[in-house]
Design a protein around this nucleic acid. Structure first.
Length: 373
DNA sequence: AAGACGGGGCA
DNA sequence: TGCCCAGTCTT
């Protein structure tokens, strides 16, 4: 750390070299991804939404299925939210899907189906922030907006030995200013993708491949042998673990599923009813109580199915899943916005959270036969 | 300015 | 396990 010379900006000569080397490297080494086949702003938009906090490898199959189902923005606007969520099932951050669908509807109804070419008009749409607007406008329309994502921040932090943590919200403006100064305005879309591609393929978080980096000569962190020091990052807090009870309520061979409210965690998804265990409460008691509270039904536990562990961003859950027999009562929803009694094969028509998808394959295929006998 | 919001992959 | 990822919205 002794001889580390920190910088807050590039000098002009470095700028030219970095731009040239970066773009040449990108042309030679970039991946061939489905949203790079053309400059269709709709496809680029969809891809950028899916890529938020999500790796390329994860997003690709979702992207292909999504544009297959909705080839154009008009097709997306015409679709039901439930259908959109089903295509998003398992991808996470479901507000992205709700916002993208709402934005598509708004573009069609208010903007003649035209994706805004003005930055401020674009960011006025739900789910479109600085990053999405910069990415789509630069890649589809060639506008000079620098993207700042996690890749860009990591690359810049290393190039300049930046002192500020990348996950400090107040530092974002500083990264944006630096990215703007580095942007190659001759081809902003290609340059933006080049920086992000470098972050994804070469300047990776754990073990960067500095030996093949096209801008290694300009890297402050590398020259100071401090690659592992950057980027700086604030420590994250420990997350709590909740104990959940979930019931597969069976009535005449049909299963009860409920739909979560549109806002908040897993908004709009379907699930098997249940909820958090209270202090000192048994898993079975919590299952019966939660189902009564959410649906108004009285049930009894018939057997234990399995225990599921699942991690969210801010907490973990340990979920005990029980088979329940319907006893009495009519459905009166308190919390969920909808419910249905469904047969086992019908499950695949609904979008479920991952925690539910982990136990759904275990549900006994002979449920119907057993109940009849 | 901090917290909410999913899920997967990797060391 | 803990970290981190082509961010945005709410409070």
């Amino acid at each position: 750390m002794n001889h580390l010379k920190k910088m807050s900006e590039f000098n002009h000569a470095d700028l030219l070299v970095i731009r040239k080397n970066l773009v040449h490297w990108y042309d030679a080494c970039h991946r061939h991804l489905p949203w790079r086949e053309n400059a269709d702003p709709y496809r680029i938009w969809v891809s950028e939404v899916m890529l938020q906090q999500t790796r390329v490898k994860t997003a690709v199959p979702y992207f292909l299925a999504f544009v297959e189902a909705f080839p154009t923005l008009e097709d997306l606007a015409k679709a039901d939210l439930e259908q959109v969520l089903k295509l998003w099932e398992g991808l996470g951050y479901y507000a992205r899907a709700r916002n993208l669908h709402k934005a598509a509807c708004r573009v069609v109804s208010d903007l003649h189906g035209r994706i805004p070419s003005r930055f401020s008009d674009f960011t006025a749409l739900p789910g479109v922030g600085d990053y999405i607007a910069s990415a789509v406008l630069s890649m589809a329309f060639g506008q000079a907006h620098a993207v700042v994502d996690a890749n860009v921040k990591r690359v810049l932090a290393r190039l300049l030995c930046l002192d500020v943590p990348v996950n400090l919200s107040s530092a974002h403006r500083q990264f944006q200013t630096i990215a703007d100064s580095l942007l190659d305005r001759n081809d902003p879309g290609r340059f933006n993708q080049a920086v992000m591609e470098l972050g994804a393929l070469v300047c990776t978080p754990a073990v960067p491949a500095c030996s093949v980096c096209p801008i290694a000569d300009n890297c402050c962190a590398l020259s100071a042998a401090q690659i592992q020091t950057f980027p700086l990052r604030l420590k994250t807090k420990k997350i709590p673990c909740h104990r959940i009870s979930t019931g597969i309520v069976i009535k005449n061979g049909k299963l009860l599923v409920t739909r979560r409210k549109l806002s908040g965690l897993l908004g709009g998804l379907w699930e098997f009813p249940g909820g958090k265990r209270l202090k000192g409460e048994t898993a079975r008691a919590a299952c019966i109580r939660e189902i009564k509270e959410e649906t108004g039904l009285d049930v009894s536990i018939s057997s234990f199915l399995t225990r599921i562990k699942h991690a969210y961003t801010h907490f973990k859950i340990e979920m005990d899943v029980f088979y329940c027999d319907y006893m009495s009562g009519e459905v009166t929803l308190n919390g969920p916005i909808d419910y249905q009694w469904i047969s086992l094969p019908e499950i695949q028509r609904f979008a479920f959270p991952k925690a539910n998808l982990k136990f759904i394959p275990l549900i006994d295929q002979t449920l119907n036969a057993r109940k009849v006998s």
